[in-house]
Nucleic acid binder design. Structure first.
Length: 575
RNA sequence: GGUCCCGUGGUGAAGUGGAGUUCACGCCGGCCUGUCAAGCCGGAGGUCGCGGGUUCGAACCCCGUCGGGACCGCCA
């Protein structure tokens, strides 16, 4: 059908007779006997010189046979890889005509409403950006598979129709025809199956798994998403980190990015230095300890505070007028801080702030020194509980300093030693698990499970890339006695354990090996590696924020016959 | 469940109470032998998302609703 692709021809092929096939990108007419037609496929465009009587229009599907010729020196187009050549003496065959597309198939109009792009996704994907993103995605998937298999992981597929479990994300449910009134759930993740595969002696499992969660959609969340899901037997945390690290480094390389060594920090350090459990390491502006500077202060907003920290937004003083400063204060308050102190560093080095008059000369001097203040800098200070201070400044740090996603470098980060429990359940008063209830506590902290549960660290860990949480994992509990202690702590009775997790826990009585695993989101990883802010840009057929597909019109009502067969009656909407 | 932003020819934008809704691209027709976002001339194309209200008068103001987006809640 064709001898070359449209982005392939160079001066090396001059004189050859070639056949190209593709879509008409543009047509430029020059009188009755000359026109230039650019033919496009996913590799690029090639200029074909044709007789102007040939009736081809934008997006017609054509096959062109002709001779590769050098362009006259003054007509070489340096902007195109194929710009040194053109096809002459063309025979143009129209393989299919096309209506005028609703929007240009071009990169220079990247402003088309996303709803329109999704309605005509088959045209949107013809564009270079989408072609590139989907091919990056394919390369990443391939690199991950290779990396996992090279490390002895076995791909095992798990069911899409699974039992509903009450914990975690809201599930999509699927009615059973054979047992009307009973339902399957679509898997939020293969979590339970992969641990049973360890009991089953698979040793190292992986899967590029489709996961489904019926939670509200966001720029980084779709109903359906892909995870690299993995589980390993007879390992500790470091073994898991090494295996997954190899996969994500290979994935980045497949997308053309070198990442270097993966840094590892504790959750406490992440919160203390960056104020967030998924820090973006591409920029500094770290949280600086100031509590000791104000240990004897008379300024009452600082006097009683257990933790005072600050950040230096270098050179931002001028940019932030009263309005924008109020916005920063609102951000801090939204995160629970009692307030925000700001100071601008004047040209002579003095600190200008509504509260400067409440601080002593030596306090101001120490503050300036600690934050390395220079003229033009904006200093932001929060005084509160440790966690509140950190979280407020962490958000401000991100808001003020975070580079756009397409700016490298690419810095993976393991965050380890997460707290075992986060907060207390409003109803039961019991601690709430930070990860899930099958997570192994840190061995040094097990003794404090009952006496001081909130101080117990878990063997759970997150993988972060440039401020995006890619995924999480843990070493699991494989000893029934320890599992029983955790359930006891969470206030889950033996009866409830059996009802909710019986099919999962009972197999552990038959010889469960020590094991742990990880899962990370492919969509997020590919988005970052492709330089996209939104995972919809790396998904061929994504859904809108309301969960609809403008191309297929899903979701739709179904026929009464179908509902009857399933024993389902649709009730009128109640608001 | 909530907060905020956006809906104007096919596409993207301008118009924020008063004359015929303006422009660019695209589309259709014509001209044009070296363009490459070709150029020139002409033409067609609109329920200003939808419904209600205020007003002498609404694309514009108000209420509701639908659709799209960002975020909070939610995502163990």
């Amino acid at each position: 059908m064709r001898t070359h692709q449209c982005g392939e021809l160079r001066v090396d092929q001059i004189g050859q007779t070639v056949t190209l096939a593709g879509w008409v990108a543009t047509r430029r007419e020059h009188g009755s006997s000359l026109a230039f037609v650019d033919v496009r496929d996913h590799t690029g465009v090639t200029q074909c010189v044709v007789d102007n009587t040939v009736d081809v229009r934008a997006e017609y599907v054509v096959r062109v046979t002709g001779t590769v010729a050098a362009r006259p020196a003054e007509n070489v187009n340096d902007k195109l890889p194929t710009g040194g050549v053109e096809i002459q003496d063309c025979v143009v065959e129209v393989l299919n005509v096309a209506e005028a597309p609703p929007f240009p198939i071009s990169e220079r109009t990247d402003t088309v409403a996303e709803g329109t792009r999704l309605q005509y996704r088959f045209l949107d994907i013809r564009r270079e950006r989408m072609q590139r993103n989907l091919r990056v995605r394919a390369a990443v998937n391939s690199a991950i598979r290779t990396a996992m298999e090279d490390q002895g992981f076995v791909e095992v597929e798990t069911p899409m129709l699974v039992p509903s479990t009450p914990e975690g994300a809201r599930e999509f449910i699927v009615p059973s025809r054979q047992q009307p009134g009973s339902f399957y759930a679509l898997p939020q993740s293969p979590q339970l199956f992969k641990q049973l595969l360890m009991v089953a002696g698979i040793d190292r499992y992986y899967q590029l798994a489709r996961c489904l969660r019926d939670e509200d959609l966001r720029a980084d969340r779709q109903y359906e998403f892909m995870q690299l899901d993995a589980e390993m037997s007879f390992v500790d945390q470091d073994d898991v980190h090494t295996a997954i690290g190899n996969a994500v480094i290979a994935a980045a390389r497949a997308a053309g990015h070198e990442t270097g060594e993966i840094v590892k920090i504790t959750w406490h350090e992440a919160m203390d230095k960056y104020g967030i459990d998924k820090p973006d390491l591409r920029f500094g502006m770290e949280l600086t300890e100031l509590t000791d500077v104000f240990s004897a202060t008379e300024f009452k907003a600082f006097a009683g505070a257990s933790c005072i920290k600050g950040i230096n937004a270098t050179g931002k003083a001028e940019e932030f007028g009263r309005n924008k400063l109020d916005g920063l204060t609102d951000t801090a308050k939204r995160l629970g801080a009692k307030g925000l102190v700001w100071m601008k560093v004047a040209a002579d080095g003095t600190l200008e702030s509504p509260v400067a008059k409440f601080l002593t000369e030596s306090e101001l001097a120490a503050l300036a020194e600690r934050l390395a203040a220079s003229p033009g800098d904006l200093l932001l200070i929060v005084a509160d509980e440790w966690i509140t201070t950190c979280e407020a400044l962490g958000q401000l740090r991100n808001d003020l300093g975070r580079p756009p996603v397409f700016e490298g470098p690419y810095r993976y980060l393991w965050v380890v030693d997460f707290p075992m429990f986060v907060g207390v359940d409003d109803v039961t008063g019991r601690p709430k698990p930070g990860h899930h209830p099958f997570t192994q506590p840190h061995p040094d902290d097990v003794d404090r499970l009952e006496t001081d549960p909130m101080s117990v660290r878990s063997q759970a860990y997150d993988l972060v890339l440039n401020g995006w949480e890619l995924g999480s994992g843990s070493i699991r509990i494989h000893q029934p006695e320890l599992q029983a202690r955790i359930f006891e702590l969470l206030g889950i009775s033996a009866e409830e354990q059996q009802r909710k997790f019986g099919f999962f826990l009972n197999p552990f009585r038959y010889g469960a090996p020590p094991h742990g695993g990880f899962a990370f989101g492919i969509d997020r990883l590919v988005a970052i590696l492709a330089g996209e802010e939104n995972i919809r840009e790396v998904i061929a057929f994504p859904k809108t924020q309301s969960g609809a597909d403008p191309m297929t019109n899903a979701p739709t009502p179904v026929a009464d016959k179908q509902l009857n067969e399933l024993g389902i009656r649709v009730l009128p909407r109640v608001d």
